[in-house]
Write a protein that binds this DNA or RNA. Structure first.
Length: 532
RNA sequence: GGCGCGAUGGCGGAGAGGUUACGCAGAGGACUGCAAAUCCUUGCACGCCGGUUCGAGUCCGGCUCGCGCCUCCA
């Protein structure tokens, strides 16, 4: 049984779905005005593992995973204005980029990925119910949720009205009845709520008509509306970053419980810890963020090569327990890359390269374990591995188990790696909408193909006996440095054969200048590896 | 002011009242013409002060330092 630390209870509890054949899971997705950074990537990866785990425990078909896209927000409007484009143009572009990033990170595609703009009528209906019930009120420019109208307000986030420093960070709008009230709907007359110059209402603002005039929804209401539409009044698990506990999730709960009579909303809540930089929270406003695209090579690489760097970042994110703060540093990527390469080699997977350079690895003697079921069943997964994950998603312990397994049961280790989404994927589909699968089942097929292809492609052999370098067909004809290095490697092989070791060492130095490392194997075969 | 989190070996990072976490780096060995890779072996630890206990990284109390949230945030 899966045990998780439930934010609403403040302790570890058993995950008890109300109906084990219909499990609903909702995770707050991105507001699409800019590419995601590593802090945003953490919940994507963490809850992807939760999704996989629930799929294994209850059956993939039983789990409905909803991860929304917030495509209407004042920051989006402001960013689009700054760039001189329509908001939809910006959101489409950003969503495409987002899908590329999540695919590189090895995340399965959620069951539903609803967009706020597609649920405006549900949002309006919910606001109407809140007004009718006295939980919301209308001012000249806004519709507000009346926080004090719900007696449990603040309970979830453990905050009382009396103890708060209202306006600690942002100013309090003067048409509110109480500082804790929050916006459900903004009329078209209200300017942008953002830091830059576009604070006045703009003609180009996206607008929807409503009983309160033309306007746009507030921030929290869309998640309540979408989860209600797709998962129903009550569902099993709601997740997100710790910074969403208050106010976002508290407000979602308040809205949903008030608008849907008798609702308890989500029964379990999980929140991941922050990604830090030099001990401080990574955030856009501080400017200390690293985008996922930066890690993947700033779009300088073909999509096919970004996947494995995404897997490296995925490993970095899974190496710490999800509730712990994670201090990001590029050195962690280097360490994780080394760890991952070794693990793959140990279980017999040889990806062509983690980087964009034409990588060369020798596949000989290393057979892909693609026969292992890449998205294994409950029964085929190592029990200790599964137990670690079931213990509040202890991925570091699960990874330690994989290391132990790699030595004496590579096939089992490979199944675990596949389950965690840590197999190489050098040929991700570029169209993004397929990513690595439309669900757990497809994800499996695709991951298996990737592993097999990883082992088969991008390899080249240099033999002492017959130095024929293009037999594998993996050499890029246009790659001068590689061709030169291979020539030198042939000469070096000959020199070694003739025991002219001084010449051989000199040749090795020359090859290194070209960017390749020479490695000799005991069987008299040499191999080249691209130096990072 | 309120609420919450963290401190583990050189680094990262689990665990948790008595027994190897694990990874990376280091050391020694095997292998190698030399390297690399690989394999084997190995050293290194629980912020500070008290307390409970036969026994405390682990429980209790206090302290120090760092961080987060209090209506932008994943």
């Amino acid at each position: 049984m899966f045990h998780l630390f439930d934010t609403s209870e403040g302790k570890k509890t058993a995950f008890r779905p109300s109906d084990a054949t219909r499990i609903g899971m909702y995770v707050c997705g991105p507001t699409v005005y800019d590419a995601i950074h590593i802090g945003n990537a953490r919940p994507l990866v963490v809850f992807d593992v939760v999704y996989r785990l629930l799929g294994v425990l209850y059956g993939a078909a039983a789990v409905t995973y909803v991860r929304n896209i917030t495509d209407i927000d004042d920051k989006i409007i402001a960013a689009a204005m700054r760039q001189g484009i329509a908001t939809t143009q910006l959101t489409e572009k950003t969503i495409e980029q987002f899908h590329e990033d999540t695919a590189a990170l090895g995340c399965l595609v959620p069951t539903f990925e609803p967009r706020a703009t597609e649920y405006i009528s549900s949002i309006i209906a919910m606001i109407e119910r809140l007004i009718a019930a006295g939980n919301a009120y209308i001012t000249a420019d806004h519709v507000y949720f009346r926080a004090q109208s719900w007696s449990d307000y603040g309970k979830f986030a453990r905050r009382s009205f009396d103890d708060q420093m209202f306006g600690a960070r942002v100013g309090i709008a003067d048409d509110k009845e109480h500082p804790a009230d929050f916006v459900l709907w903004k009329s078209s007359s209200v300017g942008l709520d953002c830091d830059d110059d576009a604070k006045v209402p703009q003609a180009s603002m996206p607008l929807w008509s409503s009983p309160w005039g033309e306007g746009r929804p507030g921030w929290h209401i869309e998640c309540s509306a979408m989860s209600h539409e797709l998962l129903g009044t009550d569902f099993d698990l709601h997740g997100g970053g710790q910074d969403l506990i208050f106010p976002h999730h508290q407000n979602e709960i308040a809205q949903s419980c008030c608008a849907n009579t008798g609702s308890g909303f989500a029964t379990h809540w999980m929140h991941n810890g922050y990604v830090l930089v030099d001990g401080e929270k990574m955030s856009k406003s501080v400017g200390n963020f690293v985008q996922v695209a930066d890690v993947l090579g700033r779009h300088g690489l073909p999509v096919a090569h970004r996947g494995n760097l995404g897997r490296v970042l995925r490993l970095v994110l899974l190496q710490a327990h999800y509730r712990q703060p994670l201090n990001f540093a590029s050195a962690k990527l280097a360490t994780a890359e080394k760890t991952l390469k070794r693990l793959w080699a140990k279980v017999g997977i040889v990806p062509s390269s983690l980087h964009g350079t034409e990588g060369i690895a020798r596949a000989e003697g290393a057979s892909p374990r693609a026969t292992a079921d890449p998205m294994p069943s409950w029964a085929s997964l190592d029990a200790a591995f599964l137990a670690a994950l079931c213990d509040d998603l202890n991925t570091p312990a699960a990874l330690a188990r994989i290391h132990a397994l790699a030595a004496d049961d590579p096939a089992a280790a490979t199944r675990c790696l596949a389950f965690l989404g840590l197999l190489p994927a050098i040929d991700l589909p570029s169209d993004g909408d397929v990513a690595i699968g439309g669900g757990i089942a497809q994800g499996a097929t695709s991951a298996s193909r990737s592993a097999a292809e990883a082992a088969e492609s991008g390899c080249i052999k240099s033999r002492l006996a017959e130095p024929s370098f293009d037999e594998s067909g993996c050499i890029k004809s246009g790659d001068r440095a590689l061709q030169d290095a291979l020539q030198l490697a042939a000469q070096r092989d000959a020199a070694r054969r003739e025991r002219r070791f001084a010449d051989a060492d000199a040749l090795r130095d020359q090859i290194e200048v070209l960017g390749f490392r020479t490695e000799d194997s005991g069987s008299g075969q040499s191999k080249l590896t691209a130096i990072d």
